[in-house]
Design a binder for these strands. Structure first.
Lengths: 226, 226
DNA sequence: AAAATATGAGAATGATCATTCGCATGAATT
DNA sequence: AATTCATGCGAATGATCATTCTCATATTTT
């Protein structure tokens, strides 16, 4: 954790081996990152409104004067944190949408998303972002952008499967997409693994659910009766 | 909205027809309710931390001194709001779990819950409660209590159907219950009706999903291929 | 090496917050 | 009618907040 950072004025002290590996702007980026990580910890612990700048300063081991060199306001930090989290969330889900079997693709993407949210301790931050987005237009925009990015990619993935006759959903995409995404959000937000739900069992249930919703034509679907 | 309440000191001024219909304790209850409703509006607008006591006082048209006669602290108001909201949420869902066909029961309960959340503008408050519960033990307890109450009732409803051979879920209740409840939460939190999702289409999709998850044995399930 | 610039600390600032206090008034009780 | 009690107002209080200011030190440039 403490990687020997910084004397009191720890400028350009990194890696003496590397000589001038840390230019000014690199150093700046590192400090920005340091603030963001400290802020994230504080926001998870205390919420956006509940975490004070002093708390963030303490976590980042940095004075207010120093911190304000990197961000003009608390709001800017909040926005940066939300942006990063939503982007990570979207790419985590989208990155899994590549299985040739659509049912598998959706199931694995959902499972991966749930696991990722659990393992990276993103549940509390996600809940915070979600509630902030209800009244903060800037955060709402960030969330909407990422939702629509996921939605677009998801739409491509599913409609290609419809085209080739692999699935035959009982409703149109305008219903299917928001609903599936809401379901995924609910499962991530509830931290099912954290509540003791077995992931193998969850996979079975998710598959049954997805099969019900997408109605695959192929026969590779378990139709056992007991 | 403004139902002719209160002169400046509006004590026992209600309903002159009724004579002493408003005893002291009845008047008290009304004032408590007035504070709660004002607080709810403020919390939806500004969040728990973001709403100030002054804001709540203004909304309730009451001075701080007066308000503190009814609640000892802001935290107490927050707890009362959460308690009421979660109770309402649970009873809304449980109240619909009475259909003799389990698939119908679950589908209608979910639809009703989604509609209720949408129509009563509960989405933002729910999100707020959810994020508060991640770091406030008192709120977490309130949420857990209601979740387990719903879970218990839901478990009864489903296990009775399993007993009589109506359904045959592919996984045990320890997986099925948390997952279904997480799904419902996700759909309510996403305010699907508010996002333009058609409720009739949603019913079709929900039914397909529930059928996939519960595997009813009876033949009353739509198995059309187009 | 001297000037200019970037970075930092930490006290100060003014706003805002939850809560309390002193006091006045209406209702209930004697 | 007099006293007591519940209710209410709104200014006051002390804490805390986000942000800024001053100044010191380090780094880069000249």
């Amino acid at each position: 954790m403490d990687q020997g950072i910084s004397d009191r004025f720890g400028l350009a002290v990194l890696d003496p081996l590397d000589g001038q590996a840390s230019s000014r702007s690199e150093r700046r980026d590192q400090q920005v990152q340091r603030v963001l990580e400290a802020a994230k910890a504080c926001f998870i612990r205390s919420g956006f409104k509940g975490a004070s700048m002093q708390e963030i300063c303490a976590e980042a081991e940095m004075s207010p004067g120093a911190l304000y060199r990197y961000f003009p306001s608390k709001e800017a930090i909040v926005e940066a944190i939300c942006e990063a989290d939503r982007r990570d969330d979207a790419s985590c889900f989208i990155g899994m949408l590549d299985n040739p079997s659509v049912v598998d693709g959706v199931v694995y993407a959902a499972l991966h998303h749930i696991r990722h949210t659990h393992e990276c301790n993103k549940t509390a931050l996600f809940a915070e972002i979600r509630s902030e987005s209800m009244r903060n237009p800037a955060i709402d925009l960030t969330c909407s952008r990422n939702i629509s990015e996921v939605g677009k990619r998801f739409h491509q993935y599913l409609s290609a499967a419809v085209e080739r006759g692999e699935i035959d959903p009982p409703v149109g995409f305008e219903t299917l997409l928001p609903t599936i995404m809401a379901i995924g959000e609910g499962m991530a937000l509830n931290d099912l693994p954290g509540r003791g739900v077995d992931m193998d069992q969850l996979e079975i249930l998710l598959r049954a659910m997805v099969v019900g919703m997408l109605r695959p034509r192929t026969a590779d679907v378990a139709t056992n009766t007991d």
